[in-house]
Design a protein around this nucleic acid. Structure first.
Length: 314
DNA sequence: ATGGTGGCAACGCCA
């Protein structure tokens, strides 16, 4: 890649136009597996949804490929939005991902850090007209259109900068970058005419009091400081509603991340809700269920984030 | 108040 190109290239699996090959591919993959009973607690009503989307900061796709396979077996998602894939595009494990039944994959990765990917069972097309946030060439956002015409749904997958340790934009350039990122995102989305849009990802901010284990003790901790939480809510209010809080009242604790640095994450339960699912209000009637897969935090060599599942009847 | 762990990639960064 030329040094002058700050934009990471978007790579995607070429559509296979031949009908015979399509049907062969379809048959060569296991049919969509039944939803497993382990999700009995899923906050939903009725039978299988039309579309199950999962967002997960996987913290290295290649290292945790077996966990991704398990996630698919257990939950049979239609689409998975990953963050922190930590894999350059040239090394993306396309064959492994296809073997899980995702024939339509888009990704934007770089060496060592960041990286996002969307895995889909059904065709998607990349939304090309998205900014290079803060002109960094970071791989922190990718978006697709699923379906066509009036039934189309746009899905944005974000990995917001963590922001370092010191909550001061003057002292800490990483914190300044984080604030600039969410401000730029707010501006961009406020200018969009959004319909049937889902925004998911690791937004690295826990905006509500009960999105953290101790509101008082975390007010000066990056991820829960007022400039971040206010900035994130302003971004959300450009046209989204919080789909997770649609199911879990704001008065109830809700976390998606537990630090590696806690000896017993479940006992101490010092969690934060850093991962989010937002939808435009026209999709609110389609909301069928949501689940934070807490058990994934105890899988072998876990990510510090757990998957969040949302079911839509679209 | 401090330090605790993990991934990547190379003996330090980032989270």
């Amino acid at each position: 890649m030329a040094f002058t190109c700050f934009r990471c290239p978007v790579s995607f699996l070429h559509e296979i136009s031949d009908a015979f090959r399509n049907s062969f591919l379809f048959l060569s993959h296991p049919a969509r597996q039944p939803r497993k009973k382990g999700l009995a607690s899923l906050r939903r009503i009725g039978n299988a949804p039309d579309m199950r989307i999962i967002t997960w900061n996987i913290n290295s796709l290649r290292l945790r490929m077996p966990l991704l396979a398990r996630l698919c077996q257990d939950t049979a998602p239609d689409m998975i939005c990953l963050q922190e894939t930590k894999v350059p595009d040239a090394l993306f494990p396309m064959e492994d991902v296809r073997a899980l039944g995702f024939d339509h994959v888009v990704f934007r990765g770089m060496k060592g850090y960041n990286g996002v990917a969307i895995l889909s069972r059904q065709p998607v097309s990349v939304l090309e007209d998205t900014p290079d946030w803060c002109e960094r060439g970071d791989c922190r956002h990718i978006a697709v259109r699923h379906g066509t015409g009036a039934a189309a749904i746009d899905v944005h997958d974000f990995y917001v900068p963590a922001g370092g340790d010191i909550p001061d934009p003057v002292e800490n350039p990483k914190f300044a970058h984080k604030l600039a990122f969410i401000e730029e995102a707010r501006h961009w989305f406020s200018a969009q005419d959004m319909r049937r849009t889902v925004l998911v990802g690791d937004l690295n901010i826990a905006p509500l009091e009960h999105d953290v284990w101790s509101h008082r003790q975390l007010l000066k901790i990056v991820s829960h400081t007022p400039p971040e939480t206010e900035g994130l809510l302003k971004w959300q209010h450009t046209g989204f509603v919080d789909a997770m809080r649609h199911f879990v009242p704001a008065s109830e604790k809700l976390y998606t991340w537990w630090s590696y640095r806690n000896r017993d994450w479940r006992a101490s339960n010092r969690g934060r809700r850093l991962d989010h699912v937002w939808i435009t209000p026209d999709l609110q009637p389609a909301l069928r269920g949501m689940e934070v897969l807490r058990d994934a935090r105890d899988w072998d060599k876990p990510s510090d984030h757990v998957p969040v599942i949302v079911d839509l009847d679209v």
